[in-house]
Design a protein around this nucleic acid. Sequence first.
DNA 1: CCAACATGTTGACAGTGTCCACTTTGGGTG
DNA 2: CACCCAAAGTGGACACTGTCAACATGTTGG
Lengths: 210, 210
Amino acid sequence: MLAAIPPRPYHHGQLREALVNAGVALARADGPEAVVLRAATRAAGVSHNAAYRHFADRDELLRAVCERCMSQLALLMEQRIDALPSDTDPMVTAWARLDALGRAYVEFATTEPGWFQTAFAVPRTTRAFAAGEGTGASGLGPYELLGSRLDELVETGAIPPERRPGAEYAAWSAVHGLSTLLNDGPLRDLPDAERERALGAVLDVVARGL
Amino acid sequence: MLAAIPPRPYHHGQLREALVNAGVALARADGPEAVVLRAATRAAGVSHNAAYRHFADRDELLRAVCERCMSQLALLMEQRIDALPSDTDPMVTAWARLDALGRAYVEFATTEPGWFQTAFAVPRTTRAFAAGEGTGASGLGPYELLGSRLDELVETGAIPPERRPGAEYAAWSAVHGLSTLLNDGPLRDLPDAERERALGAVLDVVARGL
DNA sequence: CCAACATGTTGACAGTGTCCACTTTGGGTG
DNA sequence: CACCCAAAGTGGACACTGTCAACATGTTGG
């Protein structure tokens, strides 16, 4: 019997990328807990210990996957903003953009619950994202994208400048809280229509309160 | 050599309670992932398989622990409300109570991160809490407690009745989102002063927006 | 050309959840 | 009172995980 021809050379070549991709797929299906070292190496067709040549431990792989998930969130936010028709009135446009941003956030959490959960499951043992990580096409992360919208509201005179400080905390907390309550929290079983009502109520209160 | 006198009778007697208590302690220290069957049985001084006489699987134990954690949250919210001096103006009192409720929520999340995380980590495989579970001394859960505050605001005329529907979604999402962002999210490393500012901003926007 | 080095492999260990068969115990029935 | 049986606890096994150490295999620079 001849030795089986190995399907790939001894050295993978792109193993780090392959592992992160596998991790992203696992996270998409079942959230951060499903990002399992051995599963990722199996998917990459490689021995279980090969991962340690590219990541110090599981947390370091998970961190890379989290970054990717955060990028996906940023990407959808950018996409939904760009798809918006711009009104002649800049103030109207600014409000519409904030609204679209919030809706994109909750849309991402609802349609990609695994990714959303993973994006915020950065292991405590590693530092938070550095600048330029977890960003969308524009190089801005979800937080910066929100800040831009709020700045726009001030520039167009939609909200007075003295209300600008701390505004991102309020807006971000509101949509993030709704997202997690709908996904993993007590609002998990809410029917679609009621989910939409809840989203409307949250965005309305934020817009009025800013 | 005489046989060692067993430190407890063969039948534990209160094993279910003991396991849940152990689980609550584990959750307090390290969150829901630390609620480990074998650790709980060790703490109860019992064989690792004894747990299966009281819980179908790990998720069922975790669910019981989650309930307890939710009760702890409800308890602190009740406590902070009760400790509030009542103003002569019922409208002022109503606003103060909503504020205290939100602060209690974030206080709980900040001072007991393990419990807070666990309270919302109810396993997907099991149903959500039934009525009367995860409640405080009054028999109301955090959600009902919030609803009572909002009803009070309507009754005192602080907010018009037409703004009542959906109000709990907005208020709850805001404080819950801030809590999770501060605990596990990108706001994790915020210094104390800035945390306080963020909390103020969130509560302010909610109060203005309702 | 070969030696150092990066990368991948094999085998082991402790820890986990869960299944199975077994033992101990206490309460009810003949 | 004697018995027996169901509830509760035990011990062993299995598959799975992350991680470590020792080893094998390519690649590459001097």
